[in-house]
Computed example of a mutant assay.
Amino acid sequence: MRVANKNTLRVSDIMTCAMARLLKDEEKVFHGVSSHLPMVAMMLARSMHAPNLVHLNISGGVNPQTVKDAYYSSAGADLWNGAEAVFSLEEVFDLSMRGKLDVAFLSGVQFDINGNVNASVIGDYNKPKVRLPGGAGSAVLIPTAKKAIIWRTKHDKRTFVEKVDFVTTRGNLWKIVTPLCIFKFEEGKLLLESIHPTSSLNEVIENTGFEVNYNEIKYTPEPSEEELRMLKRIDPYDFRSKEFL
């Protein structure tokens, strides 16, 4: 079993670097609101191995420059700073529907082994315990983007369930990145792809509401020194950790 130094490795850094490594040069990649982790991951990818990646966002500023303002937002005016062009949200949807959006970073509240995503209600739809925001962009982008990457900063049995309470959207998932691991969607099922060095197979199993299947035990690579130095430069206020507060 691999033993990591949990005092030096941070889950926010592991997740950000893992998501950045999933992106390729020249891909067109979108993130929406409340998306600090994927936003920083996209900037990291552009700074490291994918200089021609096209950064699209809900604000509309294409390829914003690195932002060091304390008001840094994943959906605010900061993403217009130094932008190369303007590309509205409506155009992002159109791009995806035409099969031209390479990657969409999205999230949800419940997920099951069949790749169903719930962002609508907890409990019975007509008498829900909690009514959620709904599909919004996810209902359009998950089925139509070439690759849908889900990220979620909680990994527990209430999030990864045997069967979602409501299917907001389904299928076409590529990866799910959590604080414990990365799942991949293969042949209609979620499979464990890698375990983060701060976690273990037992921890993943204990916090997942469906059977955890895998082909082999692999660990997510730790962030490199170069990646960590770059993260300090492009995200000096550590907004990538904001969702864990």
Rank of each mutant, 00 (worst) to 15 (best):
Glu216Tyr: 13
Lys127Ala: 15
Gly137Ala: 14
Glu222Tyr: 01
Val86Ser: 14
Ile205Tyr: 00
Glu222Trp: 03
Leu132Val: 00
Trp80Phe: 15
Arg170Ser: 15
Asp238Arg: 10
Ser88Glu: 02
Val29Gly: 07
Leu245Ser: 11
Asp13His: 09
Lys100Asp: 14
Ala104Trp: 08
Gly108Glu: 08
Ile149Gln: 08
Ala136Leu: 10
Leu9Phe: 10
Ser120Cys: 05
Arg240Gly: 03
Asp102Thr: 03
Trp174Ser: 15
Asp78Glu: 12
Leu228Ile: 15
Asp25His: 02
Asp156Cys: 01
Lys147Met: 08
Lys175Val: 00
Ser74Asp: 05
Gly82Ser: 08
Glu27Cys: 06
Ile113Ala: 11
Phe183Lys: 07
Ala70Gly: 08
Val33Tyr: 04
Leu192Tyr: 09
Glu206Ile: 08
Arg233Tyr: 11
Lys189Gln: 12
Leu37Asn: 10
Thr8Leu: 10
Asn207His: 12
Leu101Ala: 07
Arg10Trp: 08
Asn7Met: 15
Gly82Lys: 05
Trp174Asn: 13
Ile150Met: 15
Val212Arg: 00
Gly209Gln: 07
Ala20Ser: 13
Leu53Gln: 00
Asn7Gln: 13
Leu56Lys: 03
Asp165Met: 04
Met39Leu: 14
Lys175Glu: 02
Asp13Pro: 06
Arg152Ile: 09
Arg240Trp: 05
Leu53Asp: 02
Asp25Ser: 03
Leu89Ser: 08
Glu26Met: 03
Phe185Thr: 01
Lys68Tyr: 04
Pro223Tyr: 02
Lys146Ile: 01
Phe30Lys: 07
Gly99Asp: 11
Asn52Met: 07
Phe105Cys: 04
Glu206Leu: 12
Leu191Glu: 04
Lys175Phe: 03
Leu192Phe: 12
Asn63Cys: 05
Lys127Tyr: 13
Gln65Ala: 14
Pro38Asp: 02
Ile150Cys: 09
Val212Met: 02
Asp124Tyr: 04
Leu101His: 04
Asp13Phe: 03
Ser107Ile: 01
Val109Trp: 11
Leu106Pro: 01
Phe160Ala: 00
Trp151Cys: 01
Glu211Pro: 04
Lys100Thr: 06
Glu225Gln: 13
Pro143Thr: 08
Ser96Phe: 07
Gly99Ile: 06
Arg240Ser: 13
Pro133Thr: 05
Gly171Ile: 03
Met1Ser: 13
Lys146Phe: 00
Ser107Lys: 14
Asn172Pro: 07
Val121Trp: 10
Asn172Ile: 01
Ile149Arg: 10
Leu180Ala: 09
Lys129Tyr: 05
Glu162Thr: 02
Asp13Asn: 14
Leu228Tyr: 03
Asp112Ala: 04
Trp174Val: 00
Met42Asp: 00
Pro133Met: 13
Trp151Asp: 09
Gly171Pro: 06
Ile150Pro: 06
Arg10Asp: 08
Glu162Leu: 03
Val33Met: 10
Arg240Ile: 01
Leu173Thr: 05
Glu26Arg: 12
Glu222Asn: 05
Leu173Phe: 12
Asn114Gln: 15
Glu187Lys: 15
Ala77Met: 14
Leu44Pro: 07
Met1Phe: 07
